[in-house]
Design a protein around this nucleic acid. Structure first.
Lengths: 329, 329
DNA sequence: CTGAAAGCGCTTACAG
DNA sequence: CTGAAAGCGCTTACAG
């Protein structure tokens, strides 16, 4: 079977395909009667627009979504929200996971360029202070709006949608300070991670307000469970803190496992605090007070800002959006 | 800045864009010297092919991926593997989550048709015996290969990549039969779910071999945590089984939470078995023997089969692929 | 309000 | 081995 195209409808409606095109894409430009006839026919005949042809002349109605990983619930939820919202607004998503590889990320961007995407939402592989891939210049020179998602780096972009990481650290710190713990172990991310450092700084602010900085031990791991598990296990050989604070969900998971392997009963021998929710903690009956981030909102704002930029006449810069988390127990 | 196109390269190479097209897409059709000159120029000038234009005449090199949800780790892992493998083979993925909505699923398929996708991998929203959406006929009439992912329904399709659910149930049953439990609570999926019923049948086979069918209680929930939690909580008010067997990861998570809410200490007051791995159980120190499925393999096979079908001259049917799980403790 | 002409960037037979 | 012609399906100024 062949797909029905504009000219098929045109024949039946006794007009040209130009009018059909207008009736379907710019209805206000066509007389009501003709318009209605055409729309009805299109419906009946099962017309499906050809995006490849459309995208060749006008907007591709396609956006690119690149995230470092999709197995971390933070990102899988974000992707769900982003894709749903984009679809609702008439945009489709070409999707890539970079798996923390700069090369894959780079290739993904090239592919997106080849699809004439209208815009890109990207959570880059690293927010190391020195990560500034060249392709952002290319995107800019082609006037393709770019929303940086969650991870902020120094590159040309339209706007960023981030968490308020200092605030998250500070709020969690305040919560922790409600009790009077003796020794606090904080497991942070990389020394060069802005997110990790912001969270850590927020935490320190809260601690110093109560003069508790001396009770702090800090481990610099990264945002994966494995390294956290290993470093916490090493630490526990020397010292037993009263609580462990993980600065993201993966870190906290790693710390939990280290304690399990060390023979601790969770919640009894060791208490945990976390930035980012540990989604399954309730299923295992372990209570982990945490900073919960509104991922719905993050995803919604990313898409909204991107589409604003796409549909604006001037492709200038938009303001960043900073989303605050809140304590959840 | 404008994108460089074939004709730009052509001018510099003193050939027409036809030759450039061939040098890049069908290199064997062009004299070695010309070919090399063109390829070098394309590289230097930063040529990026326009997929919209390519897709208008020839293959779009785009496939559609639709899954019911991306927050279940089973699917997020599968999507990761599918997208990665597709990219490696030169195909890009338009991605949709149907969120268990038949309407969204349907719209997603229409969108894919409008992109002239070369093929579709779809995990449908339901494997209820009666779910057989019309759009599969449309896909077939347009000769678009379709791989059914994980959920098998009675509709036209090229092939399916499934789990061996009877085998999974049977293997888990054998494992459970190693011990001599008094009362076994099995939490299954919907009465109309083929996957759930197959797993349940496998389980029953193993139980009846040991004449233990009388020790069995069965709850029919669905593949979400909420209902399982509720039904198990209700059950526990009347009776305390020796073990609980969850027939997918979400069900097991729900059962865990019900026990927690009932005041049980996991692993001590209640032991669990599961089909599907509970990824974070090791972090919480709860051991849950389970049937682990090789999602890498599932995803890999889906993509491989789809691309075989796409690139075959005859778009016939391919054989289904059934992937077996194995016990993990 | 509608249409004729031209073009988006690439590819596909068909010649030579 | 290379090119001239035509076309993929749609849209965009420009006329009328």
């Amino acid at each position: 079977m062949k797909k029905v195209k504009l000219s098929d409808i045109a024949k039946r409606a006794n007009v040209t395909s130009i009018t059909v095109s207008r009736a379907l894409s710019n209805p206000e430009k066509v007389k009501q009667k003709t318009r209605e006839k055409i729309q009805k026919l299109a419906q009946e005949m099962g017309y499906i627009p050809n995006m490849m042809a459309k995208g060749l002349k006008s907007s591709s109605k396609t956006i690119g979504v690149i995230v470092p990983t999709i197995t971390n619930p933070f990102f899988s939820n974000a992707v769900r929200v982003i894709v749903n919202n984009a679809n609702k607004r008439g945009y489709n998503c070409l999707f890539f996971t970079s798996d923390e590889s700069a090369e894959i990320e780079q290739n993904a961007v090239n592919t997106l360029l080849s699809y004439n995407v209208d815009g890109v939402i990207i959570g880059v592989i690293s927010e190391d202070e020195n990560y500034a891939p060249e392709y952002f210049n290319k995107l800019k020179s082609f006037h393709i709006p770019v929303v940086l998602f969650d991870r902020n780096i120094d590159v040309p972009h339209t706007c960023g949608v981030y968490l308020d990481n200092v605030d998250s650290g500070y709020k969690l710190g305040k919560e922790i300070m409600c009790d009077d713990y003796d020794d606090i172990l904080v497991v942070s991310g990389s020394l060069y991670s802005r997110v990790a450092n912001a969270r850590l700084n927020g935490l320190k602010m809260a601690f110093s307000e109560k003069d508790k900085m001396s009770k702090l031990d800090i481990i610099y791991a990264d945002f994966n469970a494995e390294l956290s598990k290993k470093l916490v296990a090493d630490f526990l050989k020397k010292k037993k803190p009263s609580i462990i604070v993980g600065l993201n969900n993966q870190i906290t998971l790693g710390a939990l496992e280290a304690c399990v392997l060390n023979g601790y009963v969770l919640s009894v021998d060791m208490k945990f605090y976390s930035i980012d929710e540990i989604q399954t903690s309730k299923n295992f009956g372990v209570s982990i007070p945490c900073i919960k981030h509104d991922i719905e909102e993050l995803g919604y704002q990313s898409v909204t800002q991107l589409i604003r930029a796409i549909e604006a006449d001037e492709c200038g810069e938009l303001s960043d959006i900073i989303i605050r988390g809140s304590i959840a127990k």
